[in-house]
Write a protein that binds this DNA or RNA. Structure first.
Lengths: 334, 334
DNA sequence: CTGAAAGCGCTAACAA
DNA sequence: TTGTTAGCGCTTTCAG
């Protein structure tokens, strides 16, 4: 418990004013004489005084920190998704000068929801209870990337259904008839919606999606490899594949190239995310871009406005993904 | 400023005891009668009471939160390095039940060093000043991945010099004579040391390292591509390449394969990091493993002990990297 | 085993 | 423009 203890009082003494005046300059209250302000500032600098945030928070009665709770399942951190969220939230907190309290949890050891001014839940896989508890104690909160309509809570999400449709649409416009997909984790809202959108669009266009063209994946490279191999061994292999994440797409690309096939001549492939890692490698990947970073940033601004607002209001935002055409898809040749 | 206000007093009233007793049960002080404890616990549960951390911290005079300061240069988040640090620190904080306050900064907008119990600096690129200021106010701090011997501060780092030597040693043991390297950012301690270790070892073994075999990179895939292409265009191309990060190694692999060459038959390649992404793809990468996650975890334990310890003590730990042999290196054939 | 009371460092009326 | 004075919610002596 080191921590020196230069308090507002020490500053006041040195500047020969009351602590109130010191508090005023700390908080940029204009009604302080030029002279006093200068003295106080000198004292602060001289003593290297930093206000004690705990005391400030206690006295002010509110808290300018926000919690970011992320599901703790293994592998979460290797996903582009998680990294983008952290980046976005982190960046927005910097500009908003909010403290970011970072919390990884699998459901046990929940975050103490009353020690932050607000909470952002990055998806909710196993921690619905925490959300409920946050709502119960009245802490403003918001959910990223999961449309939770049965709880009285704000959220900001991407329309994954539309994302799936975009992929299907593009492939169909290229005249592909034999289209396969490697899905994401279907227990996930995002994974499920992407698949549903994809499937529905194909149905609408009367393009079949037989069982053997559907591989239920989990976003891992391993499953993508298995999936792509099995597709290639089919008597009638697909001419196009929609992988529900760029990472899986990349692995699929590797498998295809290993077999000596050409992309996009022999087979087209489209990913999902717009992971910058996919700009490099042999083939620049065509993909469906998710505004992850933006979504994360927005979540902070939104939460911050909720925290500042008087009444508790609720807001729900759904962002649209968009197609990014690069080199990995071409017209159907067979 | 919503936030309900169920305080210790409400609990005390309901449990018909004093706030002191409530405080005792919150803090697991044993001297509370069975009955009172039960009552208090009931009241806490019923009222959904959560202690106000700001008040606790203020009263206790110390702070069980630690700050993680990361440099904010662009691209930092796309590095395996940064992600591993966040993972490790995050995980350790979970188990230690410390609050993690996450702070990204380029040097402006420094973290208020006196609002956390301790600080971990992830590398120090542009924020030496912050470290000095933390030391000045007496906040315990520790630096990850940078041996800072001219400041009175603890650190935990990887011996990158040894890492470079390991790579060189392995390649030499495979009888390679024409060995090239794509360095990391040489303005970085890690990048510089890896290169130096590599170069020195080669010298010791009398293996030449001509200028054209040294490409000064920056950890980006782009530079790795440029580097590898230039190596391949040399009249006397190298038979082995040491890339100072797995990501660069991966890009180099891609370039080699695109040229129709074989790995490791035509050319061997060794990376640095042990990024799991490199287990997949066409060739499993041989690499030098850095204990990043472990280092990050350890940093928390170490800092935590410093925070708990009476006197300010200092500790410096250097971890060794190790060779991970997979498929991308083979004996020299020419 | 329990409670009264004195702060922790700061903010925010309220007076002056 | 300035200072006095209550608290904010909790911990912690110190008496009982």
């Amino acid at each position: 418990m080191p921590q020196k203890k230069i308090s507002i009082e020490d500053v006041a003494r040195r500047a020969k004013v009351s602590i109130t005046t010191v508090s005023r300059v700390i908080n940029n209250v204009p009604t302080v004489s030029r002279k006093n302000r200068a003295n106080v500032e000198e004292a602060i600098a001289h003593l290297k005084f930093k206000p004690n945030i705990s005391a400030q928070r206690l006295a002010r009665g509110y808290n300018n920190s926000i919690g970011l709770v992320m599901p703790g399942y293994p592998g979460i951190f290797y996903s582009f998704y998680a990294v983008e969220l952290i980046r976005g939230v982190g960046h927005a907190c910097e500009t908003k000068r909010l403290d970011l309290v970072f919390h990884i949890t699998n459901g046990d050891n929940p975050m103490n929801t009353s020690n932050v001014g607000g909470i952002i839940f990055a998806d909710i896989i196993e921690n619905r209870k925490q959300v409920e508890s946050a709502i119960a104690v009245g802490t403003p909160c918001l959910i990223i990337n999961n449309k939770v309509d049965d709880l009285d809570v704000s959220y900001i999400a991407v329309d994954n259904n539309v994302g799936g449709r975009i992929a299907a649409d593009y492939l169909v416009s290229l005249k592909h008839k034999r289209i396969a997909t490697i899905t994401g984790n279907l227990n996930t809202q995002a994974g499920l919606h992407r698949f549903e959108g994809f499937q529905t669009f194909l149905q609408e266009k009367n393009v079949g999606l037989p069982e053997e063209y559907i591989f239920k994946g989990d976003y891992s490279r391993r499953c993508a490899r298995t999936a792509m191999k099995s597709f290639l061994e089919l008597p009638n292999p697909p001419t196009a594949v929609f992988a529900c994440s760029d990472e899986m797409a990349l692995e699929a690309v590797a498998v295809i190239l290993e077999k000596g096939l050409k992309i996009p001549d022999d087979i087209s492939i489209i990913g999902f995310d717009d992971n910058p890692a996919c700009l490099f490698g042999s083939i620049a990947l065509t993909t469906v871009k998710q505004p992850l970073f933006k979504m994360a940033e927005e979540s902070v601004y939104l939460l911050s406005s909720i925290m500042g607002g008087k009444g508790k209001f609720k807001k729900r935002i759904v962002l649209n993904p968009e197609l990014v055409v690069r080199e990995s898809c071409g017209p159907c040749r067979s």
